[in-house]
Design a protein around this nucleic acid. Structure first.
Lengths: 329, 329
DNA sequence: TTGTATGCGTTATCAT
DNA sequence: ATGATAACGCATACAA
């Protein structure tokens, strides 16, 4: 077709249609113009295969209809589904997603925030592991799962309630000696509340519990040792375990079974996140499901609709329990 | 609202530094200027927290350093990992990723291609299910897994070789009666070659095989029926099955085990893709692993480096076999 | 080397 | 309602 002739501009369309530049602009933006003019412009647009240049438009209007999303990676099913939901929510509002994977690296996170800012995005949604993240006031930012302070809105699921729910379910299912296992950052973040909720329920219901908590990047073997220590004569001290994530729950089930402990007959296990096989099939384990579509929708809503300045500084969305084979039905 | 003071521009920096506009531009682009000037500009930049406006820059230079990626979704582990790899490759070259999820909808795919074009991206990488996708010549496009014709480069793994490899492995492991199960599009696409490779190896090695192929969106129960038909007296007719994807292999294993057929003792199963638990743990099943990092790197390379016009129209990257518990070790 | 002026493609403010 | 024109922020050819 167009032999390397650069893309047509509004001026070309105006000439082709025999109208003024401003008229073309109006047609492209749905501003009413005379019927005959509109038709001529539309014909010219079709003929030239014209597309508005969003860079010129963005420069002029200072609105880019683009939102930056920062997550550690996409291979973790939880992040993948989160991004999937965010993409849907943004798309439904005619916005585009600029995606950055930070690989848990605080330096990269900071770098990408700067990049996003100079990209003049309409907003940033991030799931950050950088406690000292610096963000310019000029671009709205919503955080997922990490509370940075009152000035930056944070959206998360009800981690505390989820912890409670997990403990309550296990106890309701007959467990009388619980354990909580966590791997995670020492930084204060919302998921840490899972433990607090768990403890609160255990104490309210007067059920004994044991905690095993290690830092990020600790090898899983630490948990295996912990379990082995509590294995006496082929029988585990606990009859119910709440794992801070489905990934940990999955590994725990494997360990236990390899030790000859039956799941869920001997010990019941509940994870957290709601991870499904291939994204939409069975749950990996009995789990507390995070409301990812609602989390995504809430983030997008805050970025695009609210003034954000007086948005609530923390929004917790309700979780639910889902059976996934590692608890008694 | 904080200070509605709009973001500083180059002009502000120039004034602050007491230099001319052009000088600031040069500094920002690493073009040599007098040492003292450079320092003053850098100080002003830091003081004002200045960021170049990439929209103005893009308008001027016609380079956006942005590539659009179109995939059906992110919840499927295969797509998630692909996007993850693409993101890494793009990032390594200082490019940004605009991500679109098409949900397998041809209309949406077309819409997003148009959106990407008007976004003036430097290129488009897509995994499309729209056989009639229309794409303007003005923006380079690379396709993954679907061959659109000589004018659009296509990158895929060696599906034919993978099919052969699966059959060879099964036979090498003692199988003497194979089956191939496929769910997929009738459209000609590269993954269809998995079947051809499988057949080719079976015939070369003189091992009988059976094919079961259904269209996309057919419920899995079709395969379950197929298996049940071939179950005689608790014993399956086949001792080896090649499933076109890991997702199908996973479901097949479940069905068979629920029918009392042991995997891998009675029947061995090989899938395709190389899907791992939580993205980086064990393989879901014995599988043919797609070289996602290399596929991603190749796509990015073609988009950014080559003239693309005389890029090869089809690139097939080597696959490998990985043990995942559903074959004899 | 540094500064000045022009234009990228669009929107928006004007007269008409 | 329509058409001319001035920005938007930056890069760059050209002048100093």
């Amino acid at each position: 077709m167009a032999e390397t002739t650069s893309a047509p501009t509004m001026k070309d369309v105006a000439r082709e249609a025999g109208v003024a530049l401003g008229t073309v602009s109006k047609v492209m933006n749905g501003i009413p113009v005379g019927e005959s003019y509109r038709v001529r412009v539309e014909e010219a647009v079709a003929k030239l295969n014209y597309r508005v240049n969003s860079y010129a438009k963005g420069l002029k209007t200072n609105r880019t209809y683009t939102v930056a999303v920062l997550v550690p990676n996409l291979v973790s099913p939880f992040f993948a589904k989160l991004v999937n939901c965010l993409n849907r929510s943004l798309s439904a509002r005619k916005h585009r997603m600029l995606l950055f994977a930070t690989d848990y690296d605080p330096a990269q996170e900071q770098e990408y925030v700067i990049l996003a800012e100079q990209q003049k995005v309409d907003g940033i949604i991030c799931l950050s592991y950088n406690p000292a993240l610096k963000v310019s006031e000029s671009v709205p930012l919503v955080s997922i799962d990490r509370y940075f302070g009152a000035q930056i809105p944070c959206v998360s699921s009800d981690n505390y309630g989820g912890g409670r729910l997990a403990a309550e379910k296990l106890i309701e299912n007959g467990c009388r000696n619980l354990a909580f296992m966590r791997i995670g950052s020492k930084l204060t973040n919302e998921p840490n509340k899972r433990k607090d909720g768990f403890i609160s329920a255990c104490e309210a219901l007067n059920v004994p519990y044991t905690l095993k908590m290690v830092d990020d990047f600790t090898p899983y073997s630490a948990f295996e040792e912990f379990l082995r220590e509590h294995l006496r004569g082929g029988k585990l001290d606990f009859d119910g375990i709440f794992c801070v994530t489905d990934a940990l729950a999955y590994q725990t089930v494997r360990s236990l079974r390899s030790m000859g402990v039956r799941v869920p007959e001997d010990v019941q296990i509940i994870g957290f996140d709601g991870t499904q096989y291939f994204g939409d099939q069975d749950y990996f384990c009995s789990t507390i499901v995070q409301p990812l579509p609602e989390i995504a929708e809430t983030c997008v809503d805050m970025i695009l609709e609210k003034g954000l300045s007086k948005a609530p500084s923390l929004v917790c969305l309700p979780v639910m329990y889902a059976y996934g084979g590692t608890t008694k039905a």
